[in-house]
Nucleic acid binder design. Structure first.
Lengths: 144, 144
DNA sequence: TCCTTGGTGTCAGGTTCCTTACATTGATGA
DNA sequence: TCATCAATGTAAGGAACCTGACACCAAGGA
C-alpha cells in the first residue's frame, strides 16, 4: 500500500478532514476555556433542556461513562446543572446555566467561523452534496 | 440552534461520519487485537520502513508523545522493532516485524471491508467527488 | 405477587490523545 | 572554537474516549 493509494481512500480522507477540523476547532475554542466535547454537550443541551445524562450521551454518540467525564468538567465550571431529584426512574434532568448559555453563543460563533474557513471555495451545491454523501456514509455504517 | 439545523452543518456530518467509521473499524479490528491507531501506524510503517518515531508521528498527524503511547503497545506486542542505535542524531529507525506485517495484511482486509460498506450505493464519480471535497476541506483548514 | 427486563447512574481500569517541560544531539553562524 | 538552534526522545499529568461490572428503579408478564 503506497502513500498515494492511501490518500485516495475515502476512509483516509474522512479521518483526515475530521482530524483537521477537530484540531482547528480546539484551537479556536481554547481562549474560551472549553473543548469540542464540551461544546457538543452544550449545543445538545440547548436544543433539548432537561434531557437525562444517558439520553445526552446518545445524542452525542458517546457512552454514558464518557459523557460523565465531560459533564463533570461542565458542572465544576458552572456551565450546566444536574437536578438533585430524579424525574422518573433514576434519570436526573440536566440543564444549561445562564453562564453555559452565554458561553455556548460565543463558542458557536467561533465554530461557525472555522466551518466557513473549511468550506472556502466550495459552492452551495457542492456543500449540499458533501453533506448528503457523508450522511449516506454514516447511515450505511450504522445499519447493523 | 435546532436539531435539524445542526444536522445540515457540514462540520457536524464530517464528525458524525468519522465517528461512525472509527467505531465500525474498531469493532472489525477487535478480533485481531489491534486498534485503529495501531493500524494507522503499521500502515505508515509499511510504506516507509526505518522511519523515525517523530517522522512517523507527523505522518499520522499526532504528536511524538501520542505516538509513543501507541508504539509502546506495538512493541510489547512484538509488531514493531525500534533500533537500539540511532542512525543520525537521536532518531532511531522503526520497522515492522514479520508478525506486524502479517497482522497488517489481515487488518487491511478488515478495514477495506468496512470502507466498502460505508460507500454502498455511492457510484465511482461521487466517491471521487467525496475524496476531492474532503481533501479541499482538510487543506483549507491546514493553511495557517 | 414476584421476577425479569430495560433504562439509568456509577466505579474501576485501560487507551489514545494532548500540553508542558527537559535532556540530548547534530548543524549552523558569530 | 563556541554558542545557539532545531530536531528528537522522554517524562508527567490531564482530558476524553472505551469496556466491564454492579446497583437501582420502573414497568410488565408469568
Amino acid at each position: 500500500m503506497s502513500q498515494a493509494d492511501v490518500r485516495n481512500r475515502p476512509g483516509y480522507q474522512v479521518k483526515r478532514a475530521q482530524q483537521a477540523l477537530h484540531q482547528a476547532c480546539e484551537r479556536q475554542l481554547r481562549p474560551l476555556g472549553i473543548s469540542m466535547s464540551k461544546y457538543a454537550v452544550l449545543l445538545a443541551l440547548a436544543d433539548e433542556p432537561g434531557i437525562s445524562s444517558a439520553a445526552l450521551a446518545r445524542r452525542c454518540f458517546v457512552t454514558r461513562q464518557s459523557l460523565q467525564d465531560v459533564l463533570g468538567g461542565l458542572r465544576s465550571a458552572g456551565l450546566v446543572a444536574v437536578a438533585e431529584q430524579a424525574g422518573t426512574g433514576r434519570a436526573r434532568p440536566v440543564t444549561l446555566t445562564d453562564e453555559g448559555a452565554r458561553l455556548l453563543r460565543e463558542a458557536d460563533r467561533a465554530i461557525v467561523e472555522v466551518e466557513n474557513r473549511m468550506l472556502a471555495g466550495i459552492d452551495r451545491a457542492d456543500r449540499r452534496r458533501l453533506v448528503e454523501l457523508l450522511t449516506t456514509c454514516a447511515e450505511n455504517l450504522n445499519e447493523d
